[in-house]
Design a protein around this nucleic acid. Structure first.
Lengths: 339, 339
DNA sequence: CATCTTTGCTCAATCGATGAAGCAAGAATT
DNA sequence: AATTCTTGCTTCATCGATTGAGCAAAGATG
């Protein structure tokens, strides 16, 4: 993979030669501080026109090397396969650009080793700041960055060594569980514990959501059935397998479920379809995460939509303010109406 | 937004000083060609250990500036809000990393101005190669890149000045239309033209899909109803509005539809739900694009899934081969089974 | 007319990594 | 013992942009 042509890119030296002036004048004009450097408007215009004609493109490598700030902002993100992370990345890019920063994003597929490798790569590219989204071990990344004097903000999953912005997982799960319990009671007239499926039992979000799940049961006077709490991982296959195993253990399947992410829901729905266990009547579902097509799947599904715009506003507020204390900002999620 | 601490990053000069050797020895050791440069294993080990201890991170800007290839590969992509582009980006990153390249991706929100701006930014970062995914004006981007001697590959939408990898839109649409027509005829016993909705009438893909749509009608001996061909744009709102307007014009709504992307389908489904026009019986749908939850929406939807793994293999085959002629590789999409 | 200001530039060092060229010391060869 | 090779480094120029320092000419001031 080599460049098409051996032709050199145009540099400020080439432009200086063409304009009969010095490289430093060209630089001053092209990066906009020619007024400060007292370059005449006439020369400025001549240089600008030449640059355009020659298709000049700044060499960021050289520029960044010389400056002390790169204006590059990095983000690592677990996956691109759901609306939540998709909109996080889109918002991130938009807000970064608004501030004149160059966003670089990379996906780490929930792989701790890749997370670290990606963080290292970003440091090599001299990012001024790194957003660690849904990182397995955010503190590890913060430490790596701190060693190079690079600030970090944790998003989606909190860490203990840098500011974090997360959803109010407890509050969202509490309300979601309440609604699903109420839906079940309304339809079946009985108070029965729900299933909890999906997510990693070790991650903060899943633990908080389980806490909300339990408290909502307690509120309703329903004892949680521990055999129905299955934090089996996020992947659809994991969730599907967990359901299959559960069905193998009991014939009394729950009439309501708390599904921890749309990704897990994919597996749960697949199982529901294929197993035929709920052929006569669909269970009441609550999903912690939102997807437009899930919303159309039927009136038996409640969703919690994480408030991505506000989360990213909070992230950039932290960045803009320069804060580095390990605070946790909790952004309330949005309950999506049934239907 | 400044660095946390004023602490300098460790450079090869710092390491050289600590090891009592020269910067060039350090460089040779750390970039792995110390054998070629005849550095002793003893010194190499000492330097390696020191680098680790000091948390040394290569300054890529400096490195890239010096080398003539950056090993950075860029991609621009319209959106992150659907499975198709999401998996394109994931695959792209994985394949790039496999080849020791550093992937940078940026999303241009289907905005031609942003596309150009993003391409310029990538050029400034010295990308060795740029993949233009779903670009509104791929040739414009190719020209920009060519001026800097940077190779381009078009993905998803073809261009006339660089190699392109796209789905077989005609073939996919032909088969999809056939199936929807067959489903309608099976259920209603009548041969009636379908609705075509979504996409941009000016883009290659939409035109090819419309051609497949028309040819499938011709095959079945059904005349296409031109008032039912609505390439209104991809956005859900556009599709929803198009449906609303159609319903205002006629009371005889089609029993089958070809929807050009899941994004447009979102709007169509919303309208179907809210308008109540299909309350008694859902229309037969065909969607050009795949989404797992759409697949669960019911047995009345057929989907065409674009073959992302093969498309990206093709892209990297082109990159690896160094080809630059404006060929078009058409990758057959996959028909997803009903249900 | 002499001095001071202002204007409009140029010079040269610098950022960190790289690699061609060179050099000194020891080993091998004649 | 004299010469050539080999080993194991170091020196230095370079990539392109940035910026503090400096300088010549024109203009203003006394």
């Amino acid at each position: 993979m080599k460049r098409t042509s051996p032709q050199k890119r145009t540099t400020i030296y080439d432009l200086a030669e063409l304009a009969g002036t010095s490289a430093s004048a060209v630089s001053a004009v092209l990066n906009g501080n020619w007024k400060k450097r007292r370059i005449s408007a006439k020369l400025a215009e001549r240089i600008t026109k030449l640059a355009e004609e020659q298709g000049y493109a700044l060499n960021m490598q050289a520029s960044v090397l010389r400056r002390e700030r790169s204006k590059i902002i990095g983000m690592i993100v677990p996956k691109y396969d759901n609306r939540y992370f998709g909109s996080i990345v889109e918002q991130f890019e938009a807000l970064a650009r608004e501030r004149g920063l160059f966003p670089i994003v990379t996906c780490t597929r929930r792989d701790p080793a890749l997370e670290v490798e990606a963080a290292r790569a970003m440091l090599s590219y001299q990012v001024d700041c790194l957003i660690a989204t849904g990182a397995t071990d955010p503190d590890r990344i913060v430490d790596l960055c701190a060693a190079s004097g690079v600030r970090t903000v944790n998003l989606d999953l909190p860490g203990s060594r840098a500011p974090s912005v997360i959803s109010d997982n407890y509050g969202g799960a509490l309300e979601l569980t309440r609604r699903v319990l109420a839906n079940c009671e309304r339809e079946y007239g009985v108070k029965a514990p729900l299933l909890f499926v999906g997510g990693r039992g070790t991650d903060h979000n899943t633990m908080e959501r389980m806490r909300g799940f339990r408290d909502a049961h307690a509120e309703a006077g329903i004892p949680v059935d521990e055999t129905l709490v299955l934090p089996c991982g996020y992947a659809p296959e994991k969730a599907e397998q967990a359901m299959r195993q559960l069905a193998g253990r009991t014939h009394d399947l729950p009439r309501g479920m708390f599904v921890n992410s749309t990704i897990s829901l994919e597996g749960v729905m697949r199982w529901i379809r294929h197993s035929g266990h709920y052929a006569e009547r669909m269970p009441h579902l609550g999903c912690f995460d939102w997807d437009p097509f899930v919303a159309m799947l039927g009136d038996h599904i409640e969703m919690v939509r994480q408030d991505v715009p506000n989360m990213l506003q909070a992230v950039f507020a932290i960045i803009d303010s320069g804060a580095t204390e390990p605070t946790v900002v909790q952004v309330p999620p949005i309950m999506e109406k049934v239907g």
